[in-house]
């Protein structure tokens, strides 16, 4: 009964991926009918003489750390507040979820509009210095703009995962703690957090793998610029394969990205699962 699922996955993901792995040992521009086998030369180049890939790696790792931390902390905070029995909580949950429903291509387009035309108007209105800064043009600031848009778009999804987790926390345990006189902050860290660790594991797992693969928002917001300031590994792969016409080399980079994601997420899952067991 698993055969149809397995066939679909093999056919549309894994076989194409294995084909890319094969291409990673070739010199091929993605077009010529002749493909030349060159062994591990692509991998050697990637490790030794490609500053572009190095900077994309650094950007992606920094981006991942900040985006995963910000997303999860804010989403958890929102979840805790919107899990309480307050008026209008369903409407509020929906409000924070809405950006997650919109395609990333459109999100990028909308934010370009906000950063350019919008910020001009805000600046004229408020005379605040923040709006005079070049959020997409300054190669330091642009990092935070990309993180901001990514976090803005994805918070809703992780908030829902955390709300789901919070709903599994037995009310009685919380109430017992209230009677014992434990404060709300203590209550959260001593009782709630350990009980929702499974949610944390899942949310961190999703956000990690999404951040390491990040592409769409950057593609439409900055196209990796200015210069290479916001070029992620996935975008670097795209540019290598299609702009530089180095399909074989781009494939080698994507194999490395796959291994990176695999290593990071497997490490995260085992580490978190161990904590869950202890808790």
């Amino acid at each position: 009964m698993t055969a149809p699922a397995l066939v679909a996955i093999l056919l549309f993901v894994e076989i194409p991926f294995l084909m890319s792995v094969l291409y990673s040992f070739t010199k091929w521009n993605g077009l010529d009918k002749a493909v030349k086998f060159i062994g591990i030369a692509n991998y050697a180049e990637l490790m030794t003489t490609d500053p572009g890939f190095g900077s994309a790696m650094i950007f992606t790792l920094l981006f991942t750390v900040l985006a995963v931390a910000a997303t999860n902390v804010i989403a958890l905070l929102l979840a805790v507040i919107l899990d309480a029995n307050i008026r209008g909580k369903n409407v509020l949950r929906a409000a924070f979820y809405i950006p997650n429903i919109i395609s990333l291509i459109i999100i990028g387009y909308v934010w370009r509009f906000i950063f350019s035309r919008g910020f001009d108007s805000f600046g004229a209105l408020t005379h605040l210095g923040v709006f005079q800064l070049s959020w997409l043009g300054d190669f330091h600031l642009v990092f935070f703009s990309v993180v901001l848009v990514t976090v803005w778009q994805s918070i809703g999804f992780y908030m829902v995962i955390y709300i789901a987790g919070l709903q599994t926390v037995p009310r009685e345990q919380i109430e017992a703690a209230v009677i014992d006189g434990t404060g709300p902050v203590n209550r959260f860290f001593r009782i709630t957090l350990p009980l929702i660790l499974p949610s944390v594991t899942v949310a961190v797992f999703y956000s990690l793998s999404n951040a390491l693969k990040t592409f769409d928002v950057i593609f439409s917001l900055t196209f990796g610029g200015p210069g290479t300031a916001t070029t992620s590994i996935a975008l670097d792969i795209y540019k290598t394969a299609f702009s530089d016409s180095r399909f074989g080399y781009g494939s080698a980079k994507s194999v490395v990205l796959f291994l990176l994601i695999l290593a990071v997420t497997v490490f995260q899952l085992t580490a978190f699962k161990r904590r869950e067991v202890q808790a």
Partner: peptide
Amino acid sequence: QGLGIILQGYCAGQT
């Protein structure tokens, strides 16, 4: 594109 992006980096003060 490759050189365009490098020149963009120059104009942004990256290099």
